[in-house]
Design a protein around this nucleic acid. Structure first.
Lengths: 197, 197
DNA sequence: AGTTTAAACGGAGGCGCCTCCGGTTATTTG
DNA sequence: CAAATAACCGGAGGCGCCTCCGTTTAAACT
């Protein structure tokens, strides 16, 4: 019988050497910033340089551009989902909801430029999409429930509907006031949601 | 008043110099063959070489890979549509229909590898898609009508249905017998269509 | 601590993309 | 037919992609 590994959280993960893990994490971090700033078409060699590793190292960890994009994408999605519980701890339920929606919009904003790469990704790996949207939906749902239970907002709102309203922001025309507009929309939604006294 | 150009068929076309037109046509021809054989990811420099022109010339005529793909795509579509009238002249109506459907399948076959580029193309230029499908729909419709009017096939079949049946071939799993399968499907469709005596 | 080894590194190299511009050529004008 | 000119040609060059493999190093073993 093979002895089990008691160290790793996820079981099917082959342990990485310390330097390898450092490099990998640095790469993801740098890539996230680069994608956000210049879109997913940024030079991978630049990313490797900024992370202080050779291009070979980047390609060993992420065999293709899409792999890297996927990892960054998923990481951000998870961050967004876990922000929900964090916000719920720090703010009142309604403020937590509002702030979370703002972050959601901020997240979407970084995805606007990368339509094509994302599309390729989604069609070739649709599980990513469904898992991702599941995470987000879960986060929003729990925020809604908490705020609803506490009497901060009305309770006759479906997660799906709100999610839909938020997603529509994605298809808003590109413009300088995009961010402002989307924040106004959130304010509007919150006004509608909050219970009057 | 500016004097009108009586030479060109399409009015809004600025006349090309003779050598330019030669090169352009040669490029499209070579590109069509190359795309069919090795998919749309083929090296554009190879295409230029095979066409006997410099890479600069290729890029002047087709500013991006997608432009070239689009032109080739449209050309083949038009060829397919015009083949319908040609076939109708040479064969009996039912044979014309059958042969045309075979060619349609052949056309689709060349498009299997290029899913991504085509998808990008479609989403960024959806008119191409609608115009294209209009063309081939028209072709099929006229073949159907002629054969129906002549009593060769039943008349209670909608163009849309047949088109749908044919398109389903596109999503058949890739396999060595793909071509054979699709031809069997066409045989089956024709059997169903033909009137019995 | 020293040895071993397999995992990880990183950059050179070959290829394709696309741009830019000095040279060439079809076409127009006299 | 020659000169003028605008259109066109083509390939060098700079950059990024990705692979391959000789070198380095973390980690396991003694």
């Amino acid at each position: 019988m093979a002895s089990a590994e008691p160290k790793t959280t996820s079981p099917a993960q082959t342990r990485l050497r310390a330097d390898a893990r450092r490099n990998r994490e640095k790469l993801v971090e740098v890539a996230a910033a680069a994608f956000a700033e210049k879109g997913v078409e940024t030079s991978l060699e630049d990313i490797a340089r900024q992370a202080g590793v050779g291009i070979g190292t980047l390609y060993r960890h992420f065999p293709s551009r899409e792999h890297l994009v996927e990892v960054v994408y998923r990481r951000e999605l998870e961050g967004l989902a876990s922000a929900a519980t964090e916000l719920a701890r720090l703010h009142s339920p309604d403020m937590a909801l509002e702030e979370w929606m703002r972050r959601f919009v901020g997240y979407i904003a970084t995805k606007r430029g990368m339509a094509n790469s994302l599309r390729i990704l989604m069609t070739s790996n649709s599980s990513l999409f469904s898992e991702g949207s599941g995470l987000i939906r879960g986060a929003l749902e729990s925020l809604l429930k908490t705020a609803g239970d506490g009497g901060y907002i009305r309770r006759d709102i479906e997660t799906t509907d709100l999610l839909h309203a938020l997603s529509s922001i994605y298809s808003m025309p590109e413009s300088p006031e995009w961010r402002e507009r989307s924040h106004r929309l959130i304010g509007l939604l919150m006004d509608g949601l909050r219970t009057r006294r």
